[in-house]
C-alpha cells in the first residue's frame, strides 16, 4: 500500500506557500536580489576574462616594413625572424589586407574611409610569441632584434599595457569573487531565516504530525520542495533583472564606446541554467539548515 509521495509533498508545499504568501514573496524577492547581484559579479568576471583573453592573444610584435622594400626580400626577412628564439609564428599582412581589416573593425565609422583612395598603411609582419617568452625583458630584446633587420621600419607591441591592465583586473576579479560569495552566504542566511519563521508558525502542526507517527523526512520534504521552488523563482527573477540591466547598458553605453573592438555578452543558456540551479540549491540549503536545527529541538 506504500506509494511514492512526491505528489503529496508538492501539494503540501504549494498549499504552504499559498498560506504564507507574504513571507514567501519577501523571501523570493530578497533571494532574487541576491542572485541579481551575485550573477552581475559573475557576468563581470566572464566578460573581463574574455577581454583579457583577447588582449593576451594580441601579445605579439607587429613589424612594419619600409614603404619601398623589395618584394624579393620578403621571404628572406620572414625566414630570419622565424629563426629567432621565442617566435612561434609569423604571418605577412599586406597593406591591402591591413586596410580591409581596419575597415571591418570600424564598420560603423565607415564614412571615415569614404574619401581615401590611397592606402596609408604599411605592409607588416605579425609575429606571435611563444608562451614561455612572454616576459617583458625577453619581448623587449626580441622586438629590438627585429627592428634592426633591414627593411623593418618600426616595431610595436602592447605587452606592457596588457600587464598593467591584467594586474588591475585581477584586483577587480578578487573583489567581485569575494562580493559574490558574500551575497551568496547572505542569501542562504535569508532563506534559513524565512524557513525558520515558517517553521515557527507551524510548530503546533509539526508537533501533531510527529504525534501521529510522521517521520522527520515526511515533515521535511515539503519544505525542501518549497525551498527549491522559491530558489528557482528567485533565480529566474534575478537573472531576468540582470538581463534587463544588461540590455539597457548595451543599448545606452557600449555602442558609443569600445563596442567595435570588445563585445560584451550575456550568460549562455547553459550558464543561466547554472545560475538558476545554484539559486535552487541556495533555497534548499537554507531550508536544510533551519530544519536541522528545528527538528533537533
Amino acid at each position: 500500500m506504500k506509494t511514492f509521495m512526491l505528489d503529496i509533498f508538492i501539494k503540501r508545499a504549494l498549499a504552504d506557500m499559498k498560506s504564507n504568501k507574504f513571507l514567501n514573496i519577501i523571501a523570493i524577492i530578497t533571494l532574487g536580489l541576491s542572485i541579481l547581484i551575485v550573477s552581475a559579479f559573475l557576468l563581470f568576471l566572464i566578460n573581463i576574462n574574455e577581454v583579457i583573453d583577447s588582449c593576451k592573444k594580441s601579445v605579439r610584435i607587429m613589424a612594419y616594413l619600409d614603404p619601398g622594400f623589395e618584394e624579393v626580400q620578403l621571404e628572406g626577412i620572414k625566414q630570419r625572424i622565424r629563426e629567432m628564439d621565442g617566435v612561434s609564428e609569423i604571418i605577412f599582412i599586406s597593406k591591402e589586407e591591413a586596410l580591409k581589416r581596419l575597415k571591418e573593425q570600424m564598420k560603423r565609422q565607415s564614412s571615415l574611409f569614404e574619401n581615401i583612395d590611397t592606402n596609408p598603411l604599411p605592409d607588416s609582419f605579425e609575429v606571435q610569441i611563444a608562451p614561455n617568452f612572454e616576459t617583458d625583458e625577453k619581448m623587449e630584446a626580441l622586438a629590438q632584434k627585429i627592428e634592426k633587420l633591414p627593411s623593418v621600419q618600426e616595431v610595436e607591441y602592447g605587452r606592457k599595457w596588457v600587464n598593467k591592465f591584467t594586474r588591475v583586473v585581477n584586483i577587480f576579479k578578487i573583489t567581485a569573487f569575494v562580493m559574490a560569495l558574500f551575497f551568496l552566504l547572505a542569501a542562504i542566511f535569508i532563506m534559513a531565516n524565512t524557513i525558520r519563521l515558517l517553521l515557527y508558525s507551524k510548530r503546533e502542526e509539526i508537533q501533531i504530525m510527529r504525534l501521529v507517527g510522521a517521520t522527520d523526512s515526511f515533515i521535511k520534504w515539503p519544505f525542501y520542495i518549497e525551498g527549491l521552488i522559491m530558489g528557482g523563482i528567485g533565480g529566474i527573477i534575478g537573472i531576468s533583472m540582470l538581463f534587463l540591466v544588461f540590455i539597457f547598458i548595451s543599448i545606452n553605453v557600449s555602442q558609443d564606446l569600445a563596442s567595435d573592438f570588445v563585445s560584451i555578452r550575456f550568460f549562455s543558456i547553459k550558464d543561466s541554467i547554472w545560475v538558476i540551479s545554484s539559486s535552487m540549491f541556495v533555497g534548499w540549503l537554507g531550508c536544510y539548515l533551519s530544519l536541522k536545527q528545528f527538528l533537533k529541538a
Partner: peptide, 13 residues
Amino acid sequence: SLVLESMGMNRKY
C-alpha cells in the same frame, strides 16, 4: 488523512 499519508498509504485507500 494526514495520519495515513504519513504512513505512506496510497490515495485510493
